[in-house]
Structures are given as C-alpha cells and as structure tokens.
C-alpha cells in the first residue's frame, strides 16, 4: 500500500510538472495557445534536492531529543516507576480485558505497552506490544482467530493513547517553535476522543453475530484436553 502511495506521489508530481512544461493557455482569446518552457521541471528538480537535504537536517535535530527521552525512560524502568504505573491502572485493565486473568503476564505486557505509547515512545512500545500479543495468544482457543481481548488491545493501540507525543514535539523544537510542547493538551483531548470511540466500537462490534468465533469441535476438544 505504501508502495502505491509512494509511486503516485513521486510519478504523479513528475507527470504534472511535465504537463505544465507545455504551458497550455486555455484562457487565450486566440484558442489554445502553447508556451513551452522547462521552468516547471527545473523547479521540480530543485524541490526534490531541497527535500532530500531537509530530511537529513531534520533527523540531526531529532538526535538530541530522542536521546533525552530514551535516557529518561531507562531511568524509569530501572527505578521501578513503570511497574508502579502498571499497578495503578490495574482496575481499568480488568474492565477492559475481562477475559484475561488479573495476574496473567499478558496484563503486565499490555500495561507496559500502553504506558510507552502514552509517553510517545514508539520504539519501546512495539517490543512490549508484541510480547503482549504472544501472552494473549496463550489464552486463545482458536489460534488463527483474534480473541476479544486481542481486538480490544489492537483498538487501544491504533487509537494511540498518547500523553507526551515526544517525536512530534521534537520536530517542532527542531523547527524553532515558540512553544514546541503546546500541542500536548490538544493531543490528550483528541486522543481521549479516539480511544473512547475505539473502546465503545470494539465492545459493540464483538457482540455482532457476524464477528462471533466459530469454535470447531476438534479444537474445543483439544483445548479442553489441554486444561486437564
């Protein structure tokens, strides 16, 4: 999908610029007039090189801010602050994931993932999220089909429960914003809306007949056997 978008952006731009080189003038009284020129293509080429240069400047500006957050996150892990946070949100987690036992490792992994997302630390969030999925899979009776807990966890993840959008603050700081962090409040509000919608929709949809799990006889017998 990203390949399609990329080629449309890249080739679409070049084709449109090429078309503009014909310099067609529809408004002329003398009918369709052509004023051929290479200016649009020259501008395009200059634009491409400028964009390439700008992207590296941007990444260089990000190094310091990323280092700051990753350093702080490491302190929070070592001091056990992350664990304290996990304990604090336990009551919410039990309601969101009624099918997952309270002390199951899946709960801890999910809390850590959501906490990393809240702090805007995508690189810390992904490994923890994958761990959470593996733990949820151990509770799954039909292995090729998503459980309600998995779907809820995915809905939470994709609706992005963010409190500190660190990367985007970094970009704004690198661009010399008057107040790079001013977007935090609006982000918390907007993310609250999308997360609320995500939870409501996922809980409503899981009741629809269309999304019921068809548990084959063989697999239910198998899982019953495992429990014994």
């Amino acid at each position: 999908m990203i390949n399609t978008i990329w080629i449309v952006l890249m080739a679409g731009g070049i084709l449109v610029a090429g078309f503009q080189c014909l310099g067609l003038d529809y408004s002329s009284t003398a009918g369709l007039v052509m004023n051929p020129s290479f200016v649009p293509l020259n501008d395009l080429t200059k634009g491409l090189f400028d964009s390439a240069k700008a992207s590296v400047n941007l990444a260089m500006g990000l190094i310091g801010i990323m280092a700051l957050w990753l350093g702080l996150m490491r302190i929070a892990e070592e001091s056990g602050l992350v664990k304290i946070f996990a304990r604090a949100v336990r009551p919410i987690m039990i309601r969101l994931f009624p099918d997952v036992p309270e002390d199951h490792p899946a709960m801890g992994a999910m809390v850590m993932n959501i906490a990393a997302n809240m702090l805007g630390l995508g690189n810390a969030a992904t490994p923890l999220g994958l761990k959470a999925m593996q733990e949820l899979q151990t509770l799954n009776k039909v292995k090729d089909t998503a459980t309600n807990a998995m779907a809820t966890f995915m809905a939470l993840n994709t609706s992005s429960v963010t409190f500190i959008p660190a990367t985007v603050i970094g970009i704004r700081a690198a661009a010399n914003a008057a107040n790079p962090a001013e977007i935090i409040g609006p982000v918390i509000l907007a993310t609250g809306v999308s997360t609320t919608v995500a939870v409501i929709v996922v809980k409503l949809l899981q009741k629809l007949p269309k999304y019921q799990v068809l548990e084959p006889q063989a697999s239910s017998a198998e899982s019953a056997g495992e429990e014994v």
Binding site: D144, T145, A146, T158, S159, S194, V197
Partner: peptide, 25 residues
C-alpha cells in the same frame, strides 16, 4: 505486524473498530 507475529489470520472486528477510531481521532 501484531497479528502477523502470533499467526492470527482472522482479525474479526479489530480492523473496523480501529478504522472508526482513526476517523474519530
């Protein structure tokens, strides 16, 4: 990535719920 990593193919209501949340966001 997440469903792929555990071999889940039938994602049920996960995608429609996630896309609705995106639109709301």
């Amino acid at each position: 990535v997440y469903f792929g990593s555990v071999g889940v193919k039938k994602t049920r209501h996960a995608l429609p719920a996630a896309l609705t949340a995106d639109l709301a966001g």
